[in-house]
């Protein structure tokens, strides 16, 4: 289980996260939506200490720390128990698809190379890229790169995979293959916290949808409830705008 309590993060005096409380059960799929500049990325990055929060408590499995007092060892533990999928893939450019997936197992988990590569091949099968094992990121399409990015996160066997707008950098033609892979992970009950603007993914896959604005959780609930009967006017405004553009884009001409 993952839990954050009273999480605060400031940039230059400005509170970008203004007291976030959030608990995620094992196997739960949680989607965060909200306008840009609202602190969604910062929240994910704080869970992983890519940003150092200014206040709050973080619980991941048996790790339970006051974030301001977290030691180097606590931070490494938190990072090993969370995996991150980046908007721009962030694959290691000097390593093949196989090596990207095996890297953490070899360096962080200290597995022997053969075992790590065997695991990486299993994962390449599951993400449908078995034939690209020896390809370098530069030779892969955006969709393939992001699937390798997800494969790298799968290899970590983390308590939770954090997705920060995993399809936002993709050309439209590659979006479906990445969402499809995420749906399969969700069906396997991989715990996921996903920031996305893909409302249909949120509606079809999430157990719970969270609407954030201004560094706070405004409203949350099962997708049916949040999309059909949003309570807060800010949620309603946001959904109206987003759905208007997404529907408009979907209309064939």
């Amino acid at each position: 289980m993952i839990k954050v309590e009273g999480l605060i993060k400031r940039f230059g005096g400005q509170a970008v996260l203004d007291g976030i409380d959030l608990a995620i059960e094992q196997g739960e799929i949680v989607v965060i939506i909200g306008p840009s500049g609202t602190g969604k990325s910062t929240l994910l990055r704080c869970l992983n200490f890519l940003e150092r929060p200014d206040a709050g408590r973080l619980t991941i499995g048996d790790l339970n720390v006051d974030v301001t007092r977290a030691t180097r060892a606590d931070i490494l533990t938190a990072r090993r128990r969370t995996a991150f999928v980046f908007q721009n893939y962030a694959l290691f450019a000097n390593k093949t698809a196989l090596q990207n997936i095996a890297e953490g197992l070899i360096v962080v988990n200290r597995w022997p190379k053969e075992r790590a590569h065997a695991r990486a091949r299993e994962i390449l099968e599951r993400i449908g890229l078995a034939d690209k094992a020896d390809a370098y990121p530069a030779s892969l399409s955006g969709g393939q790169q992001q699937r390798v990015g997800i494969g790298r996160a799968m290899a970590a066997q983390a308590e939770v995979i954090l997705f920060d707008e995993p399809t936002s950098s993709l050309d439209p033609e590659w979006v479906e293959e990445v969402l499809g892979l995420m749906k399969r992970l969700a069906a396997e009950r991989q715990t996921m916290l996903v920031v996305t603007h893909e409302m249909s993914f949120a509606r079809d896959v999430a157990d719970r949808v969270i609407f954030m604005e201004g560094g706070r959780i405004v409203e949350q609930g099962p997708p049916d409830q949040l999309f059909r009967a949003p309570q807060d006017p800010r949620t309603r405004d946001f959904l109206r705008q987003v759905l208007a553009t997404q529907v408009a884009l979907d209309v064939p001409d």
Partner: peptide, 25 residues
């Protein structure tokens, strides 16, 4: 690329491992 540094840290690499395995090569 700074995002690769973050990716390496996010999987739990130490600064030394990050330098040796990702940045210096």
């Amino acid at each position: 690329d700074r995002s690769q540094t973050e990716a390496a840290l996010s999987i739990g690499m130490t600064n030394g491992q990050l330098m040796r395995r990702i940045v210096l090569p």
